[in-house]
Computed example of a mutant assay.
Amino acid sequence: MINLEVPAKFAQLVDQAHQAAAEFFRPNSRKYDREEHTYPKELDLLAALLDGLSASGGGAGAGGVRRETVAKRGNQNGANLRLLLGTMEMCWGDVGLLLSMPRQGLGNAAIASVANDEQLARYAGKWAAMAITEPDTGSDSAAIRTTAVLDGDHYVLNGEKIFVTAGERADCVVVWATLDRSKGRAAIKSFVVDRTTPGFELVRLESKLGIRASDTAHFRLTDVRVHRDNLLGSPDIDTGFAGVMQTFDNTRPLVAAMAIGVARAALEETRALLNEAGVDIDYDRPWTTQPAAAATFLHLEADWEAARLLAMEAAWLADNREPNSLQASMAKAKAGRTATEITLRCVELAGAYTENSLLEKWARDAKILDIFEGTQQIQQLIIARRILDKSSTELK
């Protein structure tokens, strides 16, 4: 039976994460929003804390849980839920700064999820970004064009990757490439590429609508030679793509947690502004009998609570070694859409269209959480396939 209350054993962790968010993230939120592409060096002091929040327990990064290492002793709340709760609190402070934390990249999650023991040891303590999206390939990750050709003991990678979060700052990048374009998703593999590898060129850093504290890179790979030991998972075609995709089952609830944290910040700020304006939000009265602003707030808060519970369910299932692909996509879809709606409606309710309030920044930050790691539309497609028991070929 799932209990979706915050476990008492995580209370100290949640409190520590909230303190970090309140004492550093929130006060510096506007500063690094304005100073895009400037690395917040103060984050190095918090990196150890985030390592503690990480599901690996040793710096493997966001979502870094290897399910086979989780002992099954009845229902339990474990590393995924712990990291989810910490992420919510930190993103209450600032989601862009969280995404800038060392060793918390999606690449770390891929390494932790599918790497062998030797690779885990070799990349322990490294900051890994993830490179999936290409100029001509967005949501359909199985259609990527970057190629990997085996040449002796090395694979030679050629292609282009865009929208790589923390790409410039990371020590290495997990690059998705195909061994054979004609084989589709069956030939997709992921390779750990050190940032200093010859031919791995940083083309530019993107200027963005939101999460401006986090760098987003565009790379070009020209005859990049990567040792075969850097391939994550099986080198055999027709084997391993499902394992690579399993990374998202761990990380999509974390993106949902980011959205939940941002939305909560907006709700709390809006509630305070409504109270100052004399608008009373009464939970003991039907919303139809309350002022329009109060009724709107109650609807937004109810949506937020639904998103939070979905995300916690997805994390709990992962902790208990239960399939959670459906719930991960449901949480990501609900939270991404809800955070976008909540932050925009809060801007509207508060009239916060200028930089005098962080509400306008949170509205900008929230939109990416409905896009990256699978857009709203892709999540809905995944959900439909799971519910209707259809394959990707049968339901496109």
Rank of each mutant, 00 (worst) to 15 (best):
L267N: 11
V279D: 10
P291E: 15
T251P: 03
V262Q: 13
D282C: 06
A265C: 12
E269K: 01
R252P: 00
E268M: 03
T270V: 03
Y283G: 04
A259L: 12
T289G: 07
F248A: 01
R285V: 15
A265L: 08
D280V: 15
L274Y: 10
T251R: 02
V262W: 14
D249K: 10
L254S: 06
V279S: 09
N250L: 15
E269A: 03
T289C: 09
T251S: 03
R264K: 12
D282Y: 01
A257K: 01
T270R: 09
Q290G: 13
E269G: 01
F248L: 10
T288V: 04
R271E: 05
L274V: 04
D280Q: 07
A293N: 04
D280G: 03
I260R: 00
T270S: 07
P286W: 04
T289L: 12
E268L: 06
E268Q: 06
L267G: 08
D280E: 08
D280I: 15
Q290I: 08
R271Q: 07
V255P: 02
T270G: 04
N275D: 11
T270C: 05
P286A: 02
L254R: 02
L274M: 10
D249V: 13
A257R: 03
A265E: 13
V255H: 09
T289Y: 07
Y283I: 08
E268H: 03
G261D: 10
A272V: 04
D249A: 12
A272L: 05
T289H: 09
